[in-house]
Design a protein around this nucleic acid. Sequence first.
RNA 1: GAGGCGCUAGCUCAGACGGUAGAGCAACUGCCUUUUAAGCAGUGGGUCCCGGGUUCGAUCCCCGGGCGCCUCACCA
Length: 504
Amino acid sequence: MEELNPSELLKQRLQKLNNIKSLGIEPYPNLFEKEKTISQITKEYFSSESVPEVSDVKIAGRITAKRPMGKAGFLQITDISGKMQVYANDKTLPSEEHEVFMELDIGDIIGALGEPFRTKTGEASIRAREIKLLAKNLSPIPVVKEKDGKVFDAFADIETRYRQRYLDLIVNSEVRNTFLMRSKIISEIRDFMNSKGFLEVETPMMQSIASGAAAKPFKTHHNALDIPLFMRIAPELYLKRLLVGGFEKVYELNRNFRNEGISTKHNPEFTMMEVYQAYADYSHMMKLVEDLFLRLAEKVAGGHEVKYGEHTISFKTPWPQKTYLGIIKEKTNIDFSVYLGNENPPLEEAKKHAEAVGVDTKKCAEFWEVVDEVFSEKVENELIQPIFITEYPKAMSPLSKNIPGNPHLVERFEPYIVGREMGNAFSELNDPIEQNERFKQQLQLKAEGAHETIEMDEDYIEALKVGMPPAGGLGIGIDRLVMLFTNSSSIKDVILFPLLRPKA
RNA sequence: GAGGCGCUAGCUCAGACGGUAGAGCAACUGCCUUUUAAGCAGUGGGUCCCGGGUUCGAUCCCCGGGCGCCUCACCA
């Protein structure tokens, strides 16, 4: 029990708990079998004016409002599907249960059995002839009131909402809806992928080399082997080992971990889907992305349009395409393509161009970092409607395959929606000798001070030497996708328990 | 990591030349047997985020710290 300074509220609740026990009633019974949700009951008994005559409707959920009147009273019960009133008085209930009924609190979980009826104002209700306490609430929940769509005394403190998400879920129905939607979206994605013949697989979350992306990993240690391990920053290289192994269409939908900042768009653990298809290339991945987003829009929003903030996003296919360097030129008039053939493109010149259009390049240590800075400052935010940005410089894409006949550009695209990168895809580099060279170039760039580079993975080169079929690959950030389809502005609003610093 | 803002009752928030605080809801007591932001009457409840300084006196002023939010940086 509570040791230190039980609050007055807690003392009162504990007193009630004892009262209930002294009546011989178990305040935390083992089981109450719920047969129907509130919305099912509503549909079944209250879809017309006249309520069918039955006496044994069973309802269970949490008390979220209480309107007592003398020896009678109404309780508002909320379950996962909705809300319903339960009415009882000293005639409808046995005397002992009536005694408990009178003592019930907002926050208690109860089950009730009784006949459905409409009150004189027409509200769907249950007249209880049996009420069972299922869990006594000792720590009061926020009480939110509502009238005509207007919310009073909203539970709004963001920090408490995230730290005690269960209260947020109990009290704020739009939060509950967002997470119901998240589950639905993820399940739709799996259905979609499975229906296209992709196999869902699981590859290591703990890896001895954190490669496959450019990011800082979390480090841990395995005691028995006495080796360092890293939480994965991407499953990419393992999934491609599976292509070597003969699987032809695989995907993994699970967590990645990156030891980087926290923001409205970043959580250290986030959900990613990666897809690999052998005997395909990036154009197949484009089609897959278009079809997937359109299907999600149809399932979630009932059409090809989704509202996000002030924007209405249309997922009609096909999406437009623009090349990476082309759109930079279009928006800034800087033509970086003239440097493509240059082995060592001049950093200072890039900075001069960038600064001329007002881009701060202080942090950039390398030519292509400057280019990418220009892209994110001057282009990204304007890509509201779905678009594919294509043809990335090879130097920025160490795992992708060249465009045939073009040694400087790779077959790669990134889908952008509402100014955000939603994914990354390319034709997978399967030449082990070239891949080895690309890893080495990454090491070189790192030595020159580039901030994020991809780690060398020699074991992966070994796999490629066995032979990987030509393939297209795709990664999609699922949290951001869910943000888009749930009209959420912070990633914390689509992650049930976002990382927060522990309360001291 | 930097800057800005915030932290007062269980919840939402007021407030005070610096003299240890208040409302609504929730809770408690009484009345009320179809209410629905139920109603009426009454009652209780606070280390005013933490620590230090100034002061006769700090929740308020100053300094330091904690946590959060927003913006920026990095990425997805």
